[in-house]
Simulated assay, not measured.
Amino acid sequence: MPISTAIFWPVIAQVALIHAIYFLMLRRRYSAVRAGTAKASDFWVPAIEPEPSATVARSLINQFELPVLFFLVCVLLHLTAGVNYVVLAIAWLFVLSRYSHAYVHVTSNRLRIRQRLFVVGFVLNFSLWLLFAIHLAGL
């Protein structure tokens, strides 16, 4: 596999995480309705999220914040032939940080751990953008 297309494997892994969180949210919502802790109508207004699925819903929202910048920089690095082994390693570490962040978010939801994992992902994402800028500058 050419290194230029290898950048899409972390992208696919990140998309798989998003799909997994969607599935988990649907399961938790369905279980809440079956258990009687929520009504189907509770989900009509997005601002109202019953407790059993609230952290999963918030985790899903998180997947459309920082990861959007990740998706974009991966495509841009591919289009400009800026993919190398350092970029790939950072991309995989970013995805690992997002998996870890999501796991904490939908399980224990311990803010201190979640915040640290977010910062790690933020720094990794910033690093990808910095490497992209350096690549464009020809340095």
Rank of each mutant, 00 (worst) to 15 (best):
P2F: 08
S4G: 02
T5N: 11
F8D: 05
W9S: 08
I12P: 00
I12M: 13
L17Y: 09
I18G: 03
A20W: 11
A20H: 06
I21F: 03
Y22M: 06
Y22P: 02
Y22G: 08
F23N: 04
M25K: 14
M25P: 02
R27V: 09
S31K: 13
G36I: 07
A38E: 08
K39P: 01
A40M: 10
D42W: 01
F43G: 05
V45M: 07
P50D: 03
P52S: 05
S53Q: 11
T55Q: 13
A57G: 13
R58G: 06
L60I: 09
L60Q: 12
I61T: 12
I61D: 12
L66K: 10
P67W: 01
P67Y: 03
L69C: 09
F71E: 02
F71V: 12
F71L: 15
V73T: 15
C74K: 06
L76M: 15
L79A: 15
L79D: 12
T80Y: 07
G82P: 12
V83Q: 00
A89N: 08
W92V: 03
S100F: 02
H101P: 01
R114Q: 09
Q115L: 15
Q115K: 06
R116F: 13
L117G: 07
F118K: 06
V120D: 01
V123H: 05
F132G: 09
A133M: 06
L136R: 12
A137S: 15
G138T: 01
